[in-house]
Design a protein around this nucleic acid. Structure first.
Lengths: 235, 235
DNA sequence: CATTCCTGACGAACAATGTTCTTGACGGAC
DNA sequence: GTCCGTCAAGAACATTGTTCGTCAGGAATG
């Protein structure tokens, strides 16, 4: 096994592996997801790839496919793993509205706690236990609050989407690409005031990301709106 | 030029081109964007690629880079081209709220009129004239409606995001991947009713996509919410 | 009229990706 | 002791976006 095989390309590269390590941690879905999350936290979602994940686990890309169908499905697993950290408060923590805001605040906090996660929510859907637990709790609270069934379903969808997007935006702001944000800023700033008076007046506020305030406001807007807008039971 | 060069791989392939065509339309940014949009409409966003676009224009991939920086920038141009079709109503068309709903309805209509566009809005940002015209109009109407500046900026952002997402969802529903939607449906359907009673009760409504009703409702929710929720001027 | 130069077009090649094929080794079960 | 199935992994494949160097052709210049 350690004899140089004739097919070795050109990297003699000291063979460090296999026996020098603690025990060569056995491969598993959990290990793969963990390694992938670490890489994403360090290098962002774009820096992720089967090859890099495999390298972190000291193996080749092909080995991952024993435990994971696909890169997409791996991304789903990663997202779901992260969503398990969202706190779902016990009924004793307050009325439904208070508890709902706890969930959603925690959601955004989790998403913003790690580079790439925000982007991931907009790209990937998860139907794993993490996502389902949160969805179940949100639906329960909305119904508890007297929001009708149709409206509850739509409202849950809308809430999750909106907060995912805010998190993704913050993600881009903080970690990823100051270049992208910067170019948008430049473009908006350079718009002529005559043709675009309103953008010219408000463009700073469009990009102003004080997360907490904005999250609070968005949450109130959506809940107030959902409560005061009649559903489609006139169907 | 027509002599078989020694570097030709293995495809003799009758050389049809260059003189048999009407005139070999000259390359230009507009032509590239048009061709790219056609391909996306036909094969979806995933089917798009520099090579395929170039082939449609009867040239090689490298030629495109004379007019276009990047694939990303090309996607931006495509989106902006499409957004030019959004109707921005004249003040005579009604009060601000009516006109705002016209814009947003038109926005979703445009996004849903062509395969891939919905997905594109969630992936790409445009600062071109199409996007700016729409943003300007939305901001103007919100301010006309008495929404404060901070709130107007956030509300515009929220509105655009929400409707982009709805369009993307419909896009996936109608054209692209019945498999993806199908798998989510299956996953939700299979959830045990004991652990997830609310999802179990509402999962159909989560996926129920009657676009018009839902768009109408979402629009009302957001506007009502933005009107009834005080801004952050307590800053 | 001849020459220079510059821009647009393009063939080829590069680096990197996700994924599959095939082989090979290990370990438990008959 | 032998077989067998599962996990690991090397190598290769098909495609991707992008860049390099060259080349034609027309405009500007002498």
């Amino acid at each position: 096994m350690f004899f140089p095989s004739p097919s070795m390309k050109n990297k003699p590269e000291k063979i460090i592996s296999r026996r020098a390590r603690p025990a060569k941690a056995p491969l598993s879905v959990e290990a793969i997801v963990t390694a992938a999350l670490e890489i994403m936290a360090r290098e962002g979602l774009d820096g992720l790839g089967m090859r890099k994940i495999a390298a972190a686990l000291d193996t080749g890309p092909a080995s991952l496919y024993v435990y994971v169908d696909d890169l997409d499905s791996l991304l789903s697993l990663m997202l779901d793993r992260a969503l398990l950290k969202v706190t779902v408060p016990a009924p004793s923590r307050g009325d439904w509205r208070k508890r709902l805001s706890i969930i959603l605040f925690s959601y955004t906090k989790v998403l913003m706690s790690m580079r790439g996660l925000g982007q991931l929510t907009l790209t990937t859907v998860s139907t794993g236990p993490g996502a389902m637990r949160m969805l179940e709790a949100i639906l329960a609270l909305l119904r508890e609050g007297g929001v009708g069934d149709d409206r509850a379903a739509w409202a849950a969808d809308t809430l999750l989407l909106q907060f995912s997007a805010i998190a993704a935006e913050q993600d881009a702001h903080r970690h990823h690409a100051p270049i992208v944000i910067g170019s948008v800023k430049q473009a908006l700033e350079a718009l002529p005031a005559e043709t675009y008076p309103n953008i010219h007046a408000l463009w700073e506020k469009l990009l102003a990301g004080s997360p907490r305030v904005r999250i609070r406001w968005t949450l109130d807007v959506l809940i107030n709106g959902a409560l005061s807008t009649p559903g489609s039971e006139s169907k």
